[in-house]
Computed example of a mutant assay.
Amino acid sequence: MLSKESKPRKLVLYSKPGCCLCDGLKEKLHAAFSLSGPDPLHDVVLQEILPRLSPRLGVELVHKKIAAAFKQ
């Protein structure tokens, strides 16, 4: 149980939209967060981040990739 002073812990997952491996891992992580035991993870928040975009991409393509990720 969280006290008012404690903040949720954050787990950062670098993922790729439409990746079946990433989607499978997200499902397993959420299931693991809900398990009870000696080391509960109920306060862990999963934050998804896009994989690194190439600096060689044009602005329009960067925009498309970010917009597509937010539609997921």
Rank of each mutant, 00 (worst) to 15 (best):
M1G: 14
L2H: 04
S3V: 05
S3R: 10
S3D: 07
K4T: 12
E5M: 13
E5C: 06
S6T: 10
S6R: 09
K7M: 15
P8Q: 06
R9H: 05
K10V: 05
L11K: 02
L11G: 03
L11D: 00
V12L: 14
V12P: 01
V12H: 00
V12E: 07
V12T: 08
V12C: 08
L13I: 12
Y14D: 04
Y14G: 01
S15H: 06
S15P: 03
S15N: 12
S15Q: 11
K16C: 11
P17S: 11
P17E: 09
G18Y: 11
C20S: 15
C20F: 13
C20T: 15
L21M: 11
D23I: 00
L25H: 09
L25D: 08
L25K: 11
K26I: 08
K26G: 03
K28W: 09
K28Y: 10
K28F: 07
L29E: 07
A31V: 04
A31C: 09
F33V: 04
F33M: 07
F33N: 03
L35D: 01
L35C: 09
L35A: 11
S36M: 10
G37W: 10
G37S: 06
G37F: 10
G37T: 03
P38L: 09
P38H: 11
D39I: 01
D39H: 14
L41T: 06
H42W: 13
H42L: 03
H42R: 15
D43F: 02
D43Y: 02
V44W: 05
V44F: 09
L46I: 08
L46M: 06
Q47D: 12
Q47G: 02
E48P: 00
E48D: 06
I49A: 15
I49W: 04
I49L: 14
L50P: 04
L50T: 00
L50N: 06
R52Q: 14
R52I: 12
L53C: 02
L53S: 00
L53I: 07
S54M: 05
P55T: 06
P55D: 07
R56H: 07
L57T: 01
L57A: 01
L57S: 05
G58V: 03
G58P: 08
V59Y: 15
V59K: 15
E60R: 13
E60V: 11
E60A: 12
L61C: 12
L61F: 14
V62Y: 00
V62Q: 12
H63Q: 13
K64R: 14
K64E: 15
K65W: 00
K65Q: 09
I66W: 01
I66R: 02
A67C: 13
A68R: 09
F70R: 13
F70G: 09
K71H: 10
K71W: 07
Q72E: 15
Q72Y: 05
Q72H: 11
Q72A: 03
